[in-house]
Design a protein around this nucleic acid. Structure first.
Length: 256
DNA sequence: TTGTCTAATGCGATTACCTCA
DNA sequence: AATGAGGTAATCGCATTAGAC
């Protein structure tokens, strides 16, 4: 990897237009081993970046952008790329920000006409399948795994990272949907049961109101608790009905 | 034209590591 | 040498955007 730094154009340098420009080119084309060999293999033109002195991004933000640049440059060890740096008005947060674009060299000629719009990559079926398999093994990645996958699939590590993040989000969403469905079923079942129990309570209340008929019934026919469906051993002689009130000991009709 | 899928972006929170007083 | 504070980078989840189909 070659890196050249200069503070503006010395020939035109003045106190007013002191800017920053950087030239960068990857010495490792795709498929080359990352062995620290300094020989220049890539035929890609070197990259030039300019941070003009009037850049709205200053201080920590500017430093942050430079860190992003460095990180992007590091990624170049895995995948060759071109970068474009520009100031863009962002409407969503009303903030003017520097935007760094990294475009794969091998992405095809259709990237050329992209202009300012973001091009969206569709992963191939093979790539997706491979990532799915990896996700089954481990749904998070360590840096080594990320780099290995990136190299294997000819993608940038950041793309691998994003894919895993989105995949985790999809898994979570799906699980939430399953949970919702389950809870809904539980709710329906409980509502149904509640309805049934209410009906039973009404029937028992009606039964209580016409006690003479109720008392005539043999105890053995009424020894099942309607709510817990427990059968009492009334046939053994000890009746489950209260002798004085004629009520079941399982529950109180007056409290129901 | 509209809806869905999903790659990509932005941001805040967390954590680990480093430097320095 | 030990320690706490502050800075930085990496990573994550989450919300959102936007391109492709």
């Amino acid at each position: 990897m070659e890196l050249a730094l200069s503070l503006g154009n010395p020939s035109k340098l003045s106190s007013k237009d002191l800017g920053f420009c950087m030239g960068l080119s990857s010495s490792q084309d795709k498929g080359d081993a990352v062995d620290g060999d300094e020989k220049r293999v890539s035929s890609d033109p070197p990259l030039h970046l300019h941070l003009p002195p009037f850049s709205p991004v200053q201080g920590p933000e500017r430093r942050f952008e430079m860190n992003r640049l460095a990180a992007a440059a590091e990624e170049g060890a895995v995948s060759s790329f071109q970068m474009a740096f520009r100031v863009k008005n962002r409407s969503r947060r009303g903030k003017r920000e520097l935007e760094l674009e990294i475009v794969e060299n091998t992405r095809g000629s259709d990237d050329d006409e992209s202009g300012s719009t973001r091009k969206k990559l569709r992963l191939s079926k093979q790539q997706s399948a491979f990532l799915e398999e990896s996700f089954k093994e481990h749904n998070t990645l360590n840096p080594k795994q990320k780099l290995a996958l990136a190299k294997q699939l000819n993608l940038r590590p950041r793309q691998i990272e994003v894919w895993f993040q989105n995949r985790r989000a999809r898994t979570k969403l799906k699980q939430t949907e399953i949970d919702c469905e389950y809870l809904k079923r539980c709710c329906d079942t409980l509502a149904e049961k509640n309805k049934r129990l209410q009906k039973e309570v009404q029937e028992l209340r009606a039964l209580k109101s016409c006690q003479p008929f109720y008392k005539q019934l043999p105890a053995t026919t009424l020894t099942m608790c309607p709510s817990c469906e427990r059968v009492a051993t009334a046939a053994s002689g000890s009746s489950n009905t209260d002798v004085k009130t004629g009520e079941f000991p399982f529950f109180s009709l007056t409290n129901a």
